[in-house]
Amino acid sequence: MSATTDSATNNHGHLDRVYVWEWPVRLFHWSIAASVVVLAVTGIYIGNPFLPVTGEATRHFVMGTMKSIHFIAAMVFLLSVLSRVLWMFAGNPYARWHQFVPVSARRLKGIWETAAFYLFLKKDSPAFVGHNPLAGLVYCVVYGLCFVMIATGLAMASASAHVDSMLSSFQFLIPLCGGLQMAHFLHHIGMWLIIGFVAHHVWSAFLVGTVERSSLIDSIFSGYKVLTPDIAHRARKHIEEDR
């Protein structure tokens, strides 16, 4: 995909549009987001089934339906997370693994600078086109959490799976989770950590998008970030050189 550019202006003067988030990044972002919402809603019910159900048991399938939906969403979630991780080794520089795992001196330094900015210790945030290094590090932890959810989820699902099914081959995960009951416990704690992250994520996107009037929110729909010409030029060169 070429680094398509466009020109735009706003009240800060002349600006450039750069294609930063390629379509797989956006697709997996939104399939993860949608599946997490479905997983959290059905998961809360599975952990504490609160809906009243009366009459003959044969006429109802509330828990069964919730679990089926949970499982389908879990497969969407699993495939999206795995695909996104694979894309970390195939996509443009802004999708790459080193956006998350800070290995360069510049990104390591950027972590402290960004943190200082958020804590009101510094007036300006350091400029990064992709994820800022602190956010990248947080996403690292979030990916870890996603894999904890997948591992504990598969452990629970494997216990009831048919002996000849593919799912039952994940029974090796049960002792790694510390037993099935621990798998339930960790899975449930993990959900709240993810909900906490989503609250933080949505709020900070809103904050950066409206208060700082950046193109951040728009970019995850369109893929384009609106940047000052010099930064845009550097970003384009970075993408071009990488291919």
């Binding site: 048991a57 044969t58 006429r59 109802h60 399938f61 509330v62 828990m63």
Partner: peptide, 8 residues
Amino acid sequence: AHYDAGQY
């Protein structure tokens, strides 16, 4: 059957 139905 009660579990799957949601009756507890």
